[in-house]
Amino acid sequence: MLTYLRRSVVMAAISLVVFGFLYALAGTGVAQLLFRHQADGSITANGSTLIGQSWTSPRWFHGRPDDTGPYAANPKKGIAGGDNPLLANGVAGESGATNLGPRSKVLLADTKALVTYRHRLGVDPTEDLVTTSGSGYDPDITPLDAVVQIPMVAKATGISQSALRHLVAAETHGAELGFLGSSYVDVLQLNEGLARLERAGH
């Protein structure tokens, strides 16, 4: 019996060193050497292109509603997950979905509130704009989700609708390799493009 135990301890120690630390450290080394920008989180001047943010002003294109109140990562625990895994505007949270079932009264009420909110901003919402995502901070919307917001943004910024349509088209990423996943628009990049457009005096 002692032999089994001794072998088990030796094997566990080898595993800890090789498959824990050597693997993770060698991986980090290679990652930092080859893909430093990605490995550090795709951080740009205004945030990470992979982490959604809360956009509330009609001057910007909005992302998916993951931010506050009933749309928090885990309403039961009272954690506001919103647009950030750890902390956004002083509110603590972690990544996560609402986990509301397809026939949940809470989901129905939340969605109704979001539809009303979008209508008030002058947007005829698509489903993505009134539903929360899997991570709680989806950085992307579909091109159609951006297009339905064009009247709102045009009115608030004074930029012509056709210029905004060009912007959305220019910022649209096609499905990867032409067939994987959906085509999408990164909301942060889209709004950075919008800011450039404004600075250039339309």
Binding site: G47, N84, L87, A88, N89, G90, E94, S95, E192
Partner: peptide
């Protein structure tokens, strides 16, 4: 742009 401050894990 939007005044958001994030601390990202």
């Amino acid at each position: 742009m939007n005044g958001v401050t994030q601390t990202i894990a």
